[in-house]
Design a protein around this nucleic acid. Structure first.
Length: 434
DNA sequence: TGAGATGATTAGCC
DNA sequence: GGCTAATCATCTCA
């Protein structure tokens, strides 16, 4: 006889013995044959039964405890449990086990990747994020969005903290629960067949349950990040008018370089710095300005005159100062060098505009008068310095003659490279040929 | 509240 | 990659 058969026999014997005893104890004795014949005898029988009932629970519990102890201490118990565990493995558990081997959840992977990319999970990125970094890069690294960036970072850090706190809580709860269940199963394994494999499997199930909860946490964190990000991007997209000063600076540059309003990269950078905007905003502004100017020159005429006058005055002051400086200091060449700034207009464009301003048919009333006087002053100054004396008296209406027939700017040979902000006030621009 | 102004975006071109 | 042209979306002001 092999072990297994012996054990099953033992098991049967124990159980049968138990049942037989317990059955014998629990079941009242069969009614006597002379039931109903003798009243006293009936009373005694009932009394016996009641007594048995009164004592049955204690007796059976005690005996059950004894049987349990006997079973636990039985030399065949480990072998029995081992066989039962094997049977369990081979039946239902094996089927479940096959189902439990899930492939990695693609959604979870996506969430993990996103959280990692956003800097929510993974190593700390100094409170920054890919979005903020990208936004910072897109803005040309200027500080105009710094407030929004810091706000974004602060909120992202907040999300990150909440995420990690919650994650920690979940992990702690998971560990606690796992330990509890493991202890419980180990405890139970003394009275019922539970293999270590089964405990392991149970731990796996618990972990999966908790990871599904974690996935929910990750999902809501991702949603929060997305909302934050979209709000941040919306805020960036939101248009805000440039300051008056910035617009003035840009217009000054535009009208003083009207023959070729294509600022070089350096000029754009400097304009951006001066206007507290980004280089791309400068590019946008010039793009829009060129288009709108070309589309409706008449509308911009007054504006052009105004800025031309402005630049004329500025130039006049500069030249006057230079002359004065020249007269008082030394007879060497005055101020021919560049200040490195575009704040003084390109003389060629300036003269071109003034040529127009000085025309008879100029219609700006007060502005025209002012411009006229300013131009006169300037002409005087320039004549004094031996500069340009021709062209200023031309009787031509201010017109966009720097625009060619094709709608392009004349002499705009190489956009973004012809003009330079480093040209000094005394420099001669090629556009003077206009 | 509507029209115009203006900054941003996009497609297509060179 | 920069530019133009068209268009969108928002701001400003009467």
């Amino acid at each position: 006889m092999d072990d297994q058969s012996r054990m099953l026999q033992t098991l049967a014997g124990v159980n049968l013995a138990g049942h037989s005893v317990q059955g014998g104890m629990a079941l009242p004795p069969p009614p006597h044959g002379h039931e109903g014949a003798d009243g006293d005898g009936r009373k005694q029988d009932i009394g016996d039964i009641l007594h048995q009932i009164m004592t049955i629970t204690d007796q059976s519990l005690d005996e059950a405890q004894a049987k349990k102890h006997a079973l636990n201490c039985h030399r065949m118990k480990p072998a029995l449990f081992s066989v039962l565990c094997e049977i369990k493995e081979k039946t239902g558990l094996s089927i479940r086990g096959a189902q439990e081997e899930d492939p990695p959840d693609p959604q979870l992977m996506r969430l993990d990747n996103m959280l990692l990319a956003e800097g929510v999970s993974g190593p700390e990125k100094g409170g920054g994020s890919a979005a903020a970094a990208a936004a910072a890069a897109a803005s040309g690294g200027s500080s105009d969005n710094s407030i929004e960036h810091s706000d974004y970072r602060a909120k992202l850090t907040q999300i990150r903290q909440i995420y990690h706190t919650e994650l920690e809580k979940y992990e702690q709860a998971c560990n606690e629960f796992t330990t509890h269940v493991m202890n419980l199963l180990r405890e139970q394994s003394r009275t019922r067949p539970i293999s270590p494999k089964e405990i392991e499997r149970m731990v796996g199930i618990i972990h999966r349950k908790f990871s599904s909860i974690q996935m929910q946490l990750k999902q809501s964190t991702c949603e929060a990040v997305m909302i934050l990000r979209s709000r941040f991007l919306d805020a960036r997209r939101k248009r805000r008018n440039f300051s008056k000063q910035a617009t003035e600076i840009l217009n000054e540059y535009f009208y003083s370089h009207l023959s070729n309003p294509y600022p070089s990269e350096e000029a754009k950078e400097e304009l951006a710095k001066k206007c507290s905007i980004t280089v791309s905003q400068v590019s946008n502004w010039f793009g829009n300005k060129r288009i709108r100017y070309k589309k409706n020159i008449g509308k911009f005429q007054e504006e052009a005159n105004l800025y031309a006058a402005k630049t004329a005055v500025t130039a006049a002051h500069a030249v006057a100062a230079a002359v004065q400086n020249n007269q008082t200091n030394s007879p060497t060449t005055p101020n021919s060098g560049s200040s490195g700034s575009f704040s003084l207009p390109n003389s060629g464009d300036m003269f071109m505009n003034m040529q127009s301003l000085n025309g008879d048919s100029y219609q700006g009333s007060q502005v025209g008068a002012n411009v006229q006087s300013q131009v006169d002053t300037l002409r005087h100054v320039i004549n004094q310095t031996g500069g340009y004396s021709d062209g200023l008296g031309a009787n031509s209406l201010y017109s966009p003659h720097n625009l060619n027939a094709n709608g392009g700017w004349q002499d705009a040979t190489t956009p973004s490279s012809v003009t330079s902000p480093t040209e000094g006030p005394g420099s001669v621009h090629s556009d003077t040929s206009n």
